[in-house]
Amino acid sequence: MAVKVPILKQGKVLIASIQEDLSDSDILDLQHRILEDVIRCRAEAVIIDVSAIGILDSFGTKTLSEIAYSVRLRGAKLVIVGIQPDVALSMVLLGLTLPDIPTALDLDRGLALINGG
């Protein structure tokens, strides 16, 4: 399967920028690669940029929570950036939450969040 989401390494930070609407298997693939890279690169933080995503449904939200949880078990931090207003609204109405996962408006603010604490 072609890699849909490039993961860039910037120092101890991994940045996964989702470029397009992902299928469930693409999301699972991303999950595996993030965990591998966190271990391989001894990353201290991971940023997932979801600004190009038009919806986050139950599966997407559940998988993001799982990624955040396992990244945290490795002692690293996960920040989700760029949730679009319409996406946020449908998540709320659907009853979906991302408990305990720090979010930021965009990549710059996500990086600031990591460096600030």
Binding site: D24, G54, I55, D57, S58, F59, P85, D86, V87, L89, S90, L93, L94
Partner: peptide
């Protein structure tokens, strides 16, 4: 509206995934 477009897409996503 844009929010309603997202809601339509989300509803379809949930129903279609249940089928799969």
């Amino acid at each position: 509206s844009r929010p309603d477009q997202a809601l339509v897409a989300t509803a379809i996503s949930e129903l279609a995934r249940n089928i799969v």
